[in-house]
């Protein structure tokens, strides 16, 4: 549907394998595809198909063996660890299956965490955090610790943390995998809203066909090979 738009992610000849003992296990083989800006893409596939690995590579938290990944015109495969860390802080928001909030920090402090890497003042940080928490509907829970929140609420805090820096790309790895049906629906609605209202490019890995239905595009990975465009 968005093929006419400029691609924000361009993947060329991407391969990745892992060493298990002395054995080399190929995970991704010769992947080539583009993701247009503003896309909501669902990556599906059975366990071990390489979808999380592909997501990690696009998000710059793992290194390719061969091939290139261009994000927003930048070749992230040629970046050093430090450059990648800086790039991730500015351009990528992460949503994980298990929320991955820091348990000793309040909802406010968890959302504020990525902003500590910016030059924003304390007041500006507060404004950004309050806005992000408002967007996910948790403005009244900002002083709560993760243990005082439900799974769905924790995932919303994680989403607020992902969007607080206003990244160009949002990556979500099984964002509803640890949630009940109602909370999952709620979170999927929120993610879809971020795409529709704020134009965020979203790449979501999921097992759940119902969750994948929310996406504009579904791509399937099987044994490290990306199926042809549907």
């Amino acid at each position: 549907m968005t093929d006419t738009k400029q691609p924000i992610v361009e993947i060329k000849n991407l391969s990745k394998s892992y060493l298990r003992g002395i054995q080399t296990i190929p995970v991704l083989e010769n992947i080539n595809f583009d993701i247009p800006e503003g896309e909501f893409l669902a990556l599906m596939g059975p366990s071990g198909s390489g979808k999380s690995t592909l997501l990690n590579l696009i998000a710059g938290i793992d290194k390719t063996d061969t091939g290139t990944i261009m994000v927003g015109g930048l070749d992230i495969t040629s970046m050093t660890e430090t450059e990648l860390a800086h790039w991730r802080a500015v351009h990528v928001g992460f949503i994980f299956q298990f929320y991955n909030l820091i348990p000793v920090l309040t909802a406010f402090e968890n959302v504020e965490l990525p902003l500590l890497l910016t030059w924003l003042s304390r007041k500006e940080r507060r404004e950004h955090v309050e806005m992000a928490l408002q967007m996910v509907g948790l403005a009244d829970r900002m002083d709560h610790y993760p243990s005082q929140l439900s799974g769905g609420q924790q995932q919303r805090v994680a989403i607020a943390r992902a969007i607080v820096t206003d990244p160009t790309l949002l990556v979500a790895d099984e964002p509803t995998g640890d949630l009940d049906r109602v909370s999952a629906e709620d979170i999927l609605g929120l993610i879809a809203r971020l795409n529709q209202e704020f134009g965020k490019t979203i790449i979501m890995v999921t097992h759940d066909p119902h969750a994948a239905e929310k996406a504009h595009t579904i791509r399937k990975l099987e044994k490290g090979i990306l199926n042809a465009h549907p």
Partner: peptide, 14 residues
Amino acid sequence: IGEYAIMKTLGFGG
């Protein structure tokens, strides 16, 4: 170690 990985993911350096 998982929390440190999260922080690194968010862009925190070594």
